[in-house]
Write a protein that binds this DNA or RNA. Sequence first.
DNA 1: TAAGATACGGAGGCAGACTCCGGTTGGCAA
DNA 2: TTGCCAACCGGAGTCTGCCTCCGTATCTTA
Lengths: 198, 198
Amino acid sequence: MDAETPARPLRADARRNRDRLVAEARAAFAQDGVAASLEDVAARAGVGIGTLYRHFPTREALLEAVLRERFDALGAEARALLGHAAPRAALLTWARGFAEAGTTFRGLTAALSATLQDETSALHASCAAMRTAGEALLTRAQHGGEIRADLTVAELSTLVFGVAWAHEQNPRTGPADLDRLLALLFDGLTTRPPRTPA
Amino acid sequence: MDAETPARPLRADARRNRDRLVAEARAAFAQDGVAASLEDVAARAGVGIGTLYRHFPTREALLEAVLRERFDALGAEARALLGHAAPRAALLTWARGFAEAGTTFRGLTAALSATLQDETSALHASCAAMRTAGEALLTRAQHGGEIRADLTVAELSTLVFGVAWAHEQNPRTGPADLDRLLALLFDGLTTRPPRTPA
DNA sequence: TAAGATACGGAGGCAGACTCCGGTTGGCAA
DNA sequence: TTGCCAACCGGAGTCTGCCTCCGTATCTTA
């Protein structure tokens, strides 16, 4: 599970190439979305396409390497939120982080959503900690009576990703719009006395 | 708005080929999703790829032809729902139809969402009536006090498409799951006394 | 410094989008 | 019925990107 310490350390040139590939992939994904040309990534990094594929057999593997740091941070943040006094607010904060992570690159939500179905994918494993922490936050908020008890983690993730994706589709929106959509999701579309902020 | 009556009627062979292309495209999209190979569509229809591109310059144009009937029916249904006694239930019914239309073919929600941003696209025009009818339904439900007054049509469409997309991502789900997700969206995730069905 | 394990690179095969233009044909006028 | 030509057809060709394979180059270690 720790790609940083394989049985044998990488040769110096291999290590160098791998690092440059990750850096250039990040730039390419940011510019062109997750569908960026891998040949272009290799060219930017000054290596051949064969080298890219040796290090990262699939696009998802490369994506995972690029996102690893972000995911780790989000998992840690989620665990920290468990100590937070307000369960519902903590869950909402986690959901926002989850949604934002999914919109880092254009098309990322779709890629994540697809690979999360596939338990053999590198991205799946990489997300697991983040989701597990989310589950704990959800359970706590439900025990506190602030979030409906019939909601499952799967449903919550699905909805949050759906909102993140929908937000990503509209090029004219900003972070405030994502907050607004998440608030609508949490509060619902129906008129009822607003819950006082937790 | 009426692509069926151009300045000059199509020549008999052209008409025949166009009809076969639409029929085969529907089958191919149903089988392989909206990313189905257009060369394959042309082959199934027994015409050259050039013929396909002459009739439908873009994948969206072909998609529009395939979906036209469905969209027209949904617009009509939405207008009929305006006479419905229960505004909130009527809006929810429309939302479900909207979401279901978006999941007819795998990948359709994404395609629709993308082209709806582009006012020059054929799909955009084709959806306009459907969305306009939805706006009327929303306004009515808001005037009745059943749906929060601060919700815009744009937000509602975004959220419904987000839910439809998220539902489509999970291959293990059925129509009942879509209903459940839409119910969560309408009612919200927060615990409050449930609204009595309108 | 030499051997061999490790890594590199890009040619090449494949697939699908889209264009272009020589050849074909349906439909109308005489 | 015939002849004409605008309208239409078809698929070869070009381009882009994915991914594999293997001869060559480089690093590491003894």
